[in-house]
Design a protein around this nucleic acid. Structure first.
Lengths: 183, 183
DNA sequence: ACCCGCATGTAAGTCGTTACATGATTCT
DNA sequence: AGAATCATGTAACGACTTACATGCGGGT
């Protein structure tokens, strides 16, 4: 069982869906903390089904191709539950931008500053998107957001981290660019 | 040229050193944003030498095995310089803890809270280490830390981001754990 | 005697990305 | 007519992790 498996199980625990839907969800809903391509997802679903953690049924659609809708089994839900509470060691990060900062003393300061500014814009864009989603969730969600057994609470929790992450990264980029521009 | 190559070049730009030294530096100095095992580094050094970005000379030591000390070539330094200023697209993150948060609504709140508390402790430990290094750098470094063409400035810059990253992550873990403990 | 640090390598297996491949329907 | 979306797959390649492999010197 690799981590991708739990990403898939975690999405299926919320709604039964197809490999295509899972791919879209990774791209749009949970892209902040997980991403996988369809070429990884389809074979993985077959392995999960072989391990009896998911099952599928073929759903025929008119005016769309048929799709295989996957559902969590009881064993799948239990595996996911257990995994969540397991200790999670600090991962070894790999951050290309930090690596560039580490060698930024070699570069032309103005050129390097512009590169960091570009990244700052990227993070600010994401930040704006996340803050909008947060506002929507808080407007609709209300009290459900504080019920720790609701999926909406869990989504809200990850969103909070996403917002602080993007804000912190954008601010660091701004500091770095400003320092290089002065220097 | 992959990103690891630039991690190696970035370390060699500061000091000529052996594959072993590079491995240690990844584990201890730049582990916050890059890590590689010796089994990846040794073959990579040969490829870099083949591409004329580094050279090596064998240094004989008494009471220690001989070592191959690698040095940047002019071409290597130039490649590194150019890479630093290139645009750096927002990467797709993969964060196992966020994935657990996303499915935390299924778990026992007390057990999950303890898992997040454990991670909080991990981040606070790193934070304390980084803050100590920062204090040391600021005490010794003085004005060099603001000279953007000095390696110490670059190290200081990455450290600043590391500190804010760990602080932000620890605080989020604390919030998550507290929320689960209440719920 | 045994383990740890220094020092360098190879090999097997896993994981992920990019590209190849197909085919229907809807929108422009 | 052509591009985009829905839908599912395979294949080639590259990167990374873990384990295997060797050997000396110093400390317990």
């Amino acid at each position: 069982m690799n981590t991708l498996d739990y990403a898939i199980l975690g999405l299926l625990a919320r709604n039964p869906q197809s490999g295509y839907d899972l791919t879209q969800a990774m791209k749009h809903t949970i892209a902040f903390f997980w991403l996988a391509h369809h070429s990884t997802i389809y074979p993985e679903l077959r392995r999960l089904e072989h391990a009896d953690l998911v099952t599928h049924e073929v759903v025929k659609q008119q005016e769309r191709p048929d799709k295989k809708v996957y559902t969590l089994t009881a064993a799948g839900r239990e595996a996911l539950r257990r995994w969540v509470a397991e200790p999670t060691p600090l991962p070894s990060e790999r951050d290309e931008l930090m690596l560039k900062a580490f060698s930024a003393w070699l570069a032309d300061p103005a050129e390097a500053a512009e590169m960091f500014r570009a990244r700052e814009r990227g993070h600010r864009q994401r930040l704006a998107r996340y803050e909008q989603i947060r506002a929507e969730m808080e407007a609709e969600g209300g009290e459900e957001l504080s019920r720790v057994d609701s999926p909406r609470f869990a989504s809200y929790a990850t969103l909070r981290r996403g917002i602080e992450y993007e804000r912190g990264y954008a601010e660091w980029c701004a500091w770095m660019a400003a320092t290089l521009e002065r220097g």
